[in-house]
């Protein structure tokens, strides 16, 4: 079914709440949807497996492992956002993307700022030679 000949009938399904390709799915759109979720699942499984494999291997330089883990985690979050939450670059999504950017900014400020300040404080408060206990 093409959009041209169903355009009028689509409105009848839910005239106040219809979005093309969202509310009334044809078989072709459904196949496309399943494929999107399958691609997302495959990428997520791959990244998860890599993350769990990293700490057990000696192939990667030890101190580099936490950095690699964080990179994989951020990549997997991106995969989830695109393939599962459907955050895209389409005009309908502009507001969602802007809100996400603001959320990421706050998250980075909270986590990065806390770690930075507390590390600095621990460094300044530590008596010479003694590890800090809380």
């Amino acid at each position: 079914m093409s959009h041209a000949d169903t355009g009028q009938r689509d409105l009848r399904i839910d005239e106040f709440d219809a979005v093309p390709g969202q509310e009334s799915a044809s078989d072709r759109e459904l196949t496309h949807g399943v494929r999107t979720y399958l691609i997302g699942l495959a990428l997520a499984v791959l990244l998860t497996a890599l993350s769990f494999w990293l700490p057990t291997t000696t192939l990667v330089w030890g101190p580099g492992i936490p950095v690699a883990l964080i990179v994989f985690a951020i990549a997997q979050m991106g995969v989830h956002l695109v393939f599962f939450l459907h955050i895209t670059t389409s005009p309908d999504n502009t507001n969602n993307v802007l809100a996400l950017a603001f959320g990421v900014l706050i998250v980075l400020l909270v986590i990065g700022g806390s770690i930075w300040i507390m590390a600095n404080m621990n460094y300044n408060m530590m008596p010479a030679g003694a590890p800090m206990q809380m």
Partner: peptide
């Protein structure tokens, strides 16, 4: 709300759909 089908963000084509 029929217009929402043609709405493409940026305020063009009327308000976005409720969904």
């Amino acid at each position: 709300g029929h217009h929402a089908q043609a709405a493409a963000g940026h305020g063009a084509g009327g308000p976005a759909s409720k969904r």
